[in-house]
């Protein structure tokens, strides 16, 4: 289990750095959604299925949707 945890942790750190440094907003949001999905894996490893199902529906679904809807409302992606 430890190797899987380390692997997921490295992926999370990479996706967090990409979410901050990405030039386009849309890439940043998708990367944030990937971070949430990977954290679901950590929650399942740590025996917290309630939190995992909440994070899966909120982090991967609604957070991305809210951010993208707000981005579309201000008129799309600007460099």
């Amino acid at each position: 289990m430890t190797i899987a945890t380390i692997f997921v942790g490295i992926l999370m750190i990479i996706s967090a750095i990409y979410a901050i440094e990405a030039k386009k907003m849309l890439d940043s949001f998708i990367s944030l959604s990937l971070l949430s999905l990977l954290s679901v894996f950590l929650f399942v490893i740590m025996k917290a299925p309630d939190v995992a199902i909440t994070e899966a529906s909120v982090g991967a679904g609604l957070t991305t949707a809210v951010l993208i809807l707000a981005l579309r409302r201000i008129g799309g992606d600007e460099e």
Partner: peptide, 25 residues
């Protein structure tokens, strides 16, 4: 299902509500 079985299985009102909101989206 998630919020009706919230006292037996993982889940409950908070994730059930967000799943329904995702359907509305």
């Amino acid at each position: 299902y998630v919020f009706v079985h919230g006292h037996l299985t993982p889940g409950g009102g908070f994730p059930g509500g967000t799943i329904i909101a995702a359907g509305i989206l």
